[in-house]
Design a protein around this nucleic acid. Structure first.
Lengths: 292, 292
DNA sequence: AGGAGCTATAGATCACGTCTATGATCAATA
DNA sequence: TATTGATCATAGACGTGATCTATAGCTCCT
């Protein structure tokens, strides 16, 4: 039984319309083509599928049995094609993004809102984790793209730089005397420092910066979230190292102020990370395009 | 979306085996053909369906969605093909026969038993009725073939003569004096005659025979079934006109005897009737072949 | 009798499905 | 590190078979 499945499409329409001529029109074929196709099917089964009469065709008993299967099959294919079109049009589908909570909250969110408004049919899945975790998610295929701090050096990954973040040291009212001063790193280190505890890119970056100047930065307090970094600084428990964009509200309202240093802190870059040589879903491509 | 459904077969096997090479082997194609087929599908949707890696292929999110539909569709087609093969092999199906009760009982039954033994998967449907009723059944498509007395003159029908029946007059002990006599039609008519009441072929035939000899046969008793014809004759209510083959048991055991006439009664022919120019089901063809 | 449907058949044509040959990439070996 | 053996992709050639046009045959209806 080596049948061309295309024949079933012809059979389906012939049965559905009850006319080879009609089927031909539906399929943009000529009537003899349809006639021939049906004949092929009949020959392959060794069974007659249609009664031919002057008004058209009618299923035989055996043709009716075949139709009961083929009809369902063809409907499934139609549904599949509709679904594919919907996926392509982004009427449908899902987008799975990995990244840190703070990046989601302060940076990715507006893009997600925009994306969701434009494509309300796409389900969004956010998976937060540290940069190494996000990389694993990506490699395991659990997310479509990751939003992480650069640089990422991994030959399996492709990273599109998307924007810069400026990290800085901030303090609260308790250290008001520093507000108008320009501190050296050495001076800064005399104060209690609050850093993000986890093995994050930001933490690594600041450690390296201090090392490049010959100092070692050792935090008084380590916390597990950006929110705590901010809260601890506000309460005067120390000076927090935090992304400036994440505390813009506090800086504005004056509950925190930025410590001015005599050396520049290099900005950190945020990138959108995907698997290299792996095709993206339409939704993922669209999102990246939107963020650009 | 004008897609060749053949591509879905290729897609199905590629997804199922996780390898274009394997799919090619399954489908007796070469790997480039499969590769090309998948590419066509992808292009037609504008979506990537597989991740290609050095071990084979893996469905993308969108490919997985497609597969969820196509898998069911392909399974239905496989089932359909199996079913068709079963119908062809007569492992399966139904055979609907029309005819008179008496023909079924005395003539068709052994063939049906034989058929059923050879093809136990075929469901048998027997519809009894008079010849005109059976013809209607056939034209309405309610039966596949009819077993009736010939001649049938209907251009829509095709009749295969299959065997002869000899009708005759029989009587019981009450008319024992006739056993060794040879009667003329005129003499016969002096006795009470029992005929089948319904507008049957047999009734028409005997009427015509008498008319051709210039007589009119008028029954004393009309009954509605062959069984009653026999029973009435046995009980001596008259002389029944009945098919000899239907009373072979009674003739043998002596409860009935055949009246000898001085003119021959022409045999009646039984035929298997089908719609002309209408294909037969495999089961019907097989049955006819068996009866021959 | 003629016309308007329908399907079947015959024969020609050419698109396209399939092939072979080869390249590119990757992973697991030696 | 080079080698081998998988994988899939690409290019180009080939030939089959799907499709076409033209026509016939049939049935029903006017």
């Amino acid at each position: 039984m080596i049948n061309n499945y295309e024949l079933y499409k012809v059979f389906y329409w012939a049965a559905k319309t009850g006319s080879l001529t009609q089927a031909a029109k539906t399929l943009y074929l000529t009537q003899p083509s349809v006639s021939h196709a049906i004949k092929q099917l009949e020959d392959s089964f060794g069974l007659i599928l249609f009664y031919r009469n002057s008004k058209g065709v009618e299923l035989t008993q055996e043709g009716a049995v075949l139709y009961s299967y083929i009809e369902k099959s063809q409907i499934l294919i139609s549904l599949a094609e509709e679904k594919m079109a919907a996926l392509k049009n982004l009427d449908n589908g899902e987008l799975r993004i990995g990244g840190s909570d703070s990046l989601f909250k302060h940076y990715v969110l507006p893009y997600l809102e925009d994306f969701h408004e434009k494509h309300p049919g796409i389900k969004l899945h956010l998976n937060h984790g540290t940069t190494p975790e996000v990389i694993s998610f990506l490699k395991e295929g659990r997310i479509d793209l990751g939003v992480v701090r650069m640089p990422i050096v991994d030959s399996q990954l492709e990273v599109r730089e998307s924007f810069q973040l400026q990290d800085c040291f901030v303090a609260g009212a308790r250290y008001a005397e520093l507000k108008d001063m320009v501190l050296s790193l050495e001076m800064l280190l005399k104060y209690p420092i609050i850093l993000f505890s986890r093995n994050s890119r930001a933490r690594m970056a600041i450690t390296e910066i201090f090392q490049s100047y010959g100092y070692t930065i050792k935090p008084e307090i380590e916390v597990g979230s950006v929110d705590l970094l901010i809260e601890f600084a506000r309460r005067g428990l120390g000076i927090s190292y935090v992304t400036r964009e994440f505390v813009s509200k506090e800086l504005e309202e004056g509950s925190l102020f930025e410590i001015q240093l005599d050396v520049p802190l290099p900005p950190s870059h945020v990138g959108i990370m995907t698997m290299r040589n792996m095709p993206l879903t339409s939704a993922a491509s669209r999102f990246i395009e939107l963020v650009r």
